[in-house]
């Protein structure tokens, strides 16, 4: 991907993130996610209806990578069936962790395909996906 386009997508999602702002509704399940290795600190809320992720929201303070990844992940996951969402999440994590992954499943998340070049930022990219993963796990139980 062209570097300028990549930067543009990340910045757009950093400066005006999708679904930023929590709505304190008891139908949502909530989780706080912060990293041991950096200062990212995000809260997530999620609602699943009839096995479909009907909404995810987030808020907090985090770096450009973490915030934009939260925004793009939410765009990619809302409206998906839970199992499909898990597949997208796993595929995304595989990409960040330098394992084999399916480009077709990524959508805009492909902008993070070179994050492995900055190992200290992998955790930033994984913070939102790990949080959403945990929320799904909790709701599936």
């Amino acid at each position: 991907m062209d570097d300028n386009l990549r930067r543009e997508i990340i910045l757009e999602n950093y400066k005006e993130p999708y679904n930023r702002g929590l709505i304190d509704d008891e139908n949502y399940s909530k989780i706080n996610s912060r990293s041991d290795s950096c200062i990212d600190n995000l809260d997530f809320e999620m609602m699943i209806n009839n096995d479909i992720i009907s909404d995810i929201r987030f808020d907090g303070e985090a770096c450009a990578i973490s915030t934009s990844a939260a925004s793009i992940l939410i765009k990619e996951l809302v409206g998906k069936k839970v199992d499909d969402a898990l597949q997208i999440l796993n595929n995304y994590k595989n990409m960040i962790n330098e394992k084999s992954y399916d480009k077709e499943l990524l959508g805009e998340l492909i902008v993070y395909d070179e994050i492995y070049k900055q190992p200290n930022r992998k955790n930033c990219a994984l913070l939102p996906s790990n949080a959403i993963d945990k929320l799904i796990g909790r709701l599936k139980k």
């Binding site: 950096c38 200062i39 990212d40 303070e61 985090a62 770096c63 450009a64 915030t67 200290n120 930022r121």
Partner: peptide, 21 residues
């Protein structure tokens, strides 16, 4: 600019600072 982004930027110039609380 988020503090950590600024610290990462400064590291690009080999300037070591700390970001956080």
């Amino acid at each position: 600019v988020f503090a950590q982004d600024l610290a990462i930027y400064l590291n690009h110039y080999n300037i070591y600072v700390r970001a956080g609380n």
